[in-house]
Design a protein around this nucleic acid. Sequence first.
DNA 1: AGCGTAATAGCCAAAATTGACTAACGCCCA
DNA 2: TGGGCGTTAGTCAATTTTGGCTATTACGCT
Lengths: 232, 232
Amino acid sequence: MMILGLVRWMQPVHGYDVRRELLSWSADKWANVQPGSIYHALRKLAEEGQLREVATEQVGARPARITYEITPKGEDEFQNLLRGLWWNLGEVVDPFLAAFSFLPALPRDEASAALRNRARLLRSGNDSLRAAMESGWMKQGKPTHVAWMWQLSIARAEGEIAWCERIADLVDAGVPYIPEEFTQFPEWNQFGTLIGEGGADAGPERAEPSERVGQAERAEPPETSGESGTNE
Amino acid sequence: MMILGLVRWMQPVHGYDVRRELLSWSADKWANVQPGSIYHALRKLAEEGQLREVATEQVGARPARITYEITPKGEDEFQNLLRGLWWNLGEVVDPFLAAFSFLPALPRDEASAALRNRARLLRSGNDSLRAAMESGWMKQGKPTHVAWMWQLSIARAEGEIAWCERIADLVDAGVPYIPEEFTQFPEWNQFGTLIGEGGADAGPERAEPSERVGQAERAEPPETSGESGTNE
DNA sequence: AGCGTAATAGCCAAAATTGACTAACGCCCA
DNA sequence: TGGGCGTTAGTCAATTTTGGCTATTACGCT
């Protein structure tokens, strides 16, 4: 989608243009697009008839670059995709949520410390976003709505900060959360009940692998070397 | 990570157990784990020495099931992974954010309608989460911290709801955001508007907001069949 | 001019993910 | 008593994703 939309936007383009644009948006972070996938996606879209090759230039002995533009079919598909995303709730993938589900695996004091630390990180992330928005960033020719996107991030983070502090307090206060299954039975079967309850389900969250660390802000856990590695 | 953690948690287990557990958590939504990937992950972890095969039972002529348990090395790795996720900010991947970056591709009135619709969806999602938490869910033996996870979702969504309304107001108010690239080449809009209101039906506006707030919360864009398909 | 670095453009083999598929077994009810 | 259905358990080929690699040209500096 991203790629189709970008081609639509910048056409005619070749792969490297798209790559640079995505990179400049740090889209490898908030969208799901690594540079390596671009060329594959372009080829696939072209083969599906949503894009069309428009030229193939070559400068010297460099790799030839193929320029694409969107076809009416691609435009149509793009509109569908776009509306699907705007009108429905998509599933958000958040690795922290997945990790939080293992709360009982951490000692209480570390859990609460980590939560407060997270609040701190979120706050300072928000601060730097705000600073970036006010300082000359927007005069640099960035579209206004990008600032709105930042604001969405900020708004969500603000909700999360409050949550962090609240939960940290609960943890500190010794509110019990460790299920008996942990302390008593090694096996937990009573999970069948979870399924039955799907009627009111709605866990709109989702966790995805790959953690990359924001440039500066990062704290290390007390003891282990917080290697961020694979994600099985 | 998820899988390693689950094995650690439920050991000794075989693949199907893990699969059922993840399914019961709807983990295919909020984590990144489809049933198909489980066995691969288990094998990979075993081969990396983080898990160990512990038994291979076979009942009749059914597929043999291999039971795994975690090794000290796996435990170590799990602690690392877990702490990495707890102490650092991970990147959240949200398809809506990606879609929002194409705001200029939508007609103003559709954008604002979609935003308000989104606020509605989020609100009702929150409501049903809250309802689920209060109604017998927690008495069912569910670990307390799962409720905290729901609360995080709610907190974030609340921030987002406010944002939606705020931005919708801005859009309605005609705050400019369309970059010059767009207005320069009006043939782009051609498609947006054509498709947006070309449905030939009376109102190009407002998908009929279905009143019932049941599980099937979802609204359709004005005309196109909001296929949520691939995502290039 | 000569050298090192950065940017350009894309490729590719390996790894991961997916969803459809198999195939036996248990059980219920007519 | 046997046929249909759901559960159990996992496989597999095809698709996707990854991120490191190559090889050329442009640029800056002394």
